[in-house]
Amino acid sequence: MAHRDIGQWRNPVLRYVLLAIGTLSVVCGVVGIFLPVLPTTPFLLLAAACFVRSSRRFYEWLVGHRVLGPLVRDYLEGNGIPLRGKVLAIGTMWISIGVSCWLVPLPWARAGMLVSATLVTVYILRQKTLRRPG
């Protein structure tokens, strides 16, 4: 699965930053497979976005991976997000936003976090829900 933006960033510093963020996102995504409170798919999508701009090899490895690849491909091909992924992503986000709002006393920062979380929630809910057979 090729993408026209692969290798777009010629700045080596930015390329390595994107590779590092992508790698960390893959690690978090894999951990999320085993920890139900950590959403897997959003981390893998972030990794794909970083790799598509920094490394054709890592991007193709991710989308072609036997276990991780279908999670990324289903979203990229417009098949949707699994219901479990939606629930975990939204739930984890709102828990972290709630804790952040509790810790940050600045009203403008709280408002920004709440608006951002609301918009992301609407975006996720508007995505097609992937129904897996079985």
Rank of each mutant, 00 (worst) to 15 (best):
A2G: 12
R4W: 04
R4L: 04
I6L: 12
I6F: 06
I6Y: 05
G7F: 03
W9A: 10
W9P: 00
N11T: 01
P12N: 02
L14I: 13
R15G: 02
Y16G: 07
L18R: 00
L19Y: 06
L19I: 03
I21H: 05
I21T: 03
I21N: 00
G22M: 07
T23S: 05
T23H: 10
L24W: 05
L24H: 06
S25Y: 08
V26P: 01
V27P: 01
C28H: 03
V30Y: 10
I33L: 05
F34G: 09
P36F: 07
P36E: 03
L38P: 02
P39M: 00
P39F: 06
T40Y: 10
T40R: 07
T41W: 04
T41Q: 14
L45W: 02
L45V: 12
A48F: 01
F51C: 00
F51M: 13
F51I: 07
F51S: 03
F51Y: 15
R53V: 03
R53I: 07
R53Q: 07
S54Y: 00
R56D: 11
R57M: 13
R57T: 02
R57W: 15
E60D: 14
E60V: 14
E60R: 15
W61N: 10
L62W: 06
L62C: 04
G64Y: 11
V67H: 06
V67K: 02
P70R: 10
Y75M: 12
L76H: 14
E77M: 03
G78V: 13
G78C: 10
G80A: 08
G80N: 05
P82T: 08
G85N: 03
K86R: 13
L88Q: 01
A89P: 05
G91K: 06
M93A: 11
M93W: 12
W94Q: 09
V99R: 11
S100T: 15
